[in-house]
């Protein structure tokens, strides 16, 4: 019972972080067709910016300014980099962001060192909030939950209830038509790219001290973000949300399961000492996202909720 409750809580938080990280990428990908390889690098930049800002002021200022800074960096990358490569096709764009990921990694290593930085949870939030089945639950995790839900609500409101949101929604599905209607499509692209990066930055700010802030955090998150976007489907934030929650829950639940293949398929004659039989579900956890990615692409190329094929 306690395992289920804790896995549920942790899974939801991880899923929300994943969604915050990938919502921006879904927007960018649906609109511009660019799978931004460097998206997780912006997540990392968010964490590092917050760490530096927190060194001078406090966490709350970092919470606001770090994502804004990341958004500005993202907009600049779109304007002076990506836009130039656009003419050479999607593969060139993909390669550009691939190189950018290398570059951001190295710059972070030079500016902040090659090892993890001591980016901590602010003291106001560093206390056990409640006790469940003998284990304490840190307040900061609940804070992550609140921030994510607030961001989710804000995103929903902007996209569905404001004029800018409507234009973006239109550009998601009919970019050419939006252009013909006289909207400045390159500027919409730049804005969306910047906002998408800022969202990734926000995920970095609140995720960096929950997990670890080190130069490897981008590489670890990068492929999983793709999985969320592809599994969720093109042009669908709801799909991305579902995929993120699904991944978050599946990964945390898998860690908590002690069963091995032998326990599950013992009736087929699989012995616990054989190589396949001794594999536990827990050790499969990191593989689940990629299994989903490959299966979705082969069976249902438009993802869970997507409106068109990749």
């Amino acid at each position: 019972m306690e395992t289920i409750v804790f896995s549920l809580l942790n899974g939801v938080i991880y899923g929300l972080l994943l969604f915050m990280l990938s919502s921006g990428l879904t927007l960018i990908f649906s609109m511009m067709g660019v799978l931004n390889f460097a998206h997780a690098s912006f997540y990392m930049l968010g964490a590092y910016f917050a760490y530096s800002i927190m060194g001078v002021t406090n966490f709350w200022i970092a919470l606001i300014f770090a994502p804004v800074l990341v958004g500005l960096v993202g907009a600049a990358v779109e304007k002076w980099g990506l836009r130039k490569v656009h003419a050479n096709g999607h593969v060139a764009e993909l390669l550009f962001t691939f190189g950018l990921a290398y570059l951001i990694d190295e710059v972070v290593k030079i500016l902040w060192g090659r090892n993890a930085v001591d980016y901590r949870v602010p003291e106001v939030l560093d206390f056990p909030l409640f006790e469940l089945f003998g284990a304490q639950y840190p307040a900061y995790r609940v804070f992550i939950l609140l921030v994510s839900v607030a961001m989710l609500a804000a995103l929903w409101f902007i996209l569905n209830r404001t004029r800018a949101g409507l234009i973006i929604q239109a550009a998601l599905t009919h970019p050419h038509m939006v252009g013909h209607l006289g909207h400045n499509v390159p500027r919409i692209f730049m804005t969306v790219f910047g906002v998408g990066c800022a969202l990734a930055g926000l995920a970095g700010v609140i995720g960096g001290n929950y997990l670890v802030t080190d130069p490897a955090m981008a590489v670890q998150m990068g492929p999983i973000v793709f999985v969320v976007v592809v599994v969720g489907g093109l042009g669908s934030l709801t799909g991305a949300f579902l995929a993120a929650m699904l991944l978050g829950l599946m990964q945390t639940f898998a860690v908590g399961i002690d069963a091995s293949f032998a326990d599950m398929f013992g009736w087929l004659g699989l012995s616990a000492t054989s190589e396949v039989g001794s594999i536990t579900i827990a050790s499969l956890a990191p593989m689940i996202p990629f299994l989903m990615l490959v299966l979705i692409l082969m069976i249902r190329p438009r993802g869970l909720m997507g409106d068109r094929e990749l």
Partner: peptide, 10 residues
Amino acid sequence: GVPFAMISLG
């Protein structure tokens, strides 16, 4: 195209 790239990644 891109789906092939993603499958190879997975």
